[in-house]
Design a protein around this nucleic acid. Structure first.
Lengths: 118, 118
DNA sequence: TGCAATGCCTTGAACTTCGAGGTAATATGG
DNA sequence: CCATATTACCTCGAAGTTCAAGGCATTGCA
């Protein structure tokens, strides 16, 4: 048989990557994350709440985040922090992304296998 | 109302980008493209035939590719070439990808808005 | 003869994301 | 003082992709 591909959805995990990246830098809450992604990428990337909240819940369920409730100005917010598990996961996703982006970059520039970019 | 996001699936168009990139360099057929992507990215990216063939058909339908049948060693192959329309589309997808990758890269490195990378 | 590789193709399940909607509290402005 | 916008949480269905597997036919090799 022809060799079969085993590629668990090569483009996934980017929203998760972005969320973890932000939370690694500072504690944040959902609504804030949505806008931080939008503003820090100059609106090039704009994921909606329908993406961010499920990601947060999933990461918390997996022990990658911890949540604590805080009330500021009478507004109830849920702040998330990265756990060691989350740090590990971030490093992992980050590596994957770099690999992927580098591979695509090489394709675009016509570069071949072990080509250095000086 | 809170500002709504308008983001037609920000991670899409990568398989199309890869296919067009390869075909811009040289005429190729479907089966060959599948393996070229695999080998040139050192198996970091491995899209299956179930992705490539629909992409080829779609691009041809849109006038971005032309197909011609050729028989080599008794094997019937369909070679695809990029049309001017396809070149334009490639340039477009390429720009989008660079934008996206740069934005994510900035997030990862903690870089802020108009930060230069010297 | 049988199995692997070449080469085309389609399809169903699984997964993500989008877009919209729902709830509730606090500012703001006319 | 009341209507609207903003903050802040959440969920869900529709739409779109990708994956994995399968089918078909031919050629090469042991």
């Amino acid at each position: 048989m022809a060799p079969r591909v085993t590629n668990p959805n090569f483009m996934n995990g980017v929203p998760e990557l972005l969320v973890l990246t932000l939370l690694q830098q500072e504690e944040m809450y959902g609504y804030e994350i949505v806008q931080a992604i939008r503003s820090r990428t100059d609106a090039i990337i704009a994921v909606g709440e329908g993406v961010v909240y499920p990601v947060l819940h999933g990461l918390e369920r997996d022990g990658a985040l911890t949540a604590r409730r805080k009330t500021v100005n009478g507004r109830s917010r849920i702040y998330y922090s990265v756990t060691p598990v989350g740090s590990y996961r971030l490093a992992d996703l980050s590596r994957s992304w770099i690999h992927l982006a580098t591979a695509i970059q090489r394709m675009l520039t016509g570069g071949q296998h072990g080509e250095a970019i000086p």
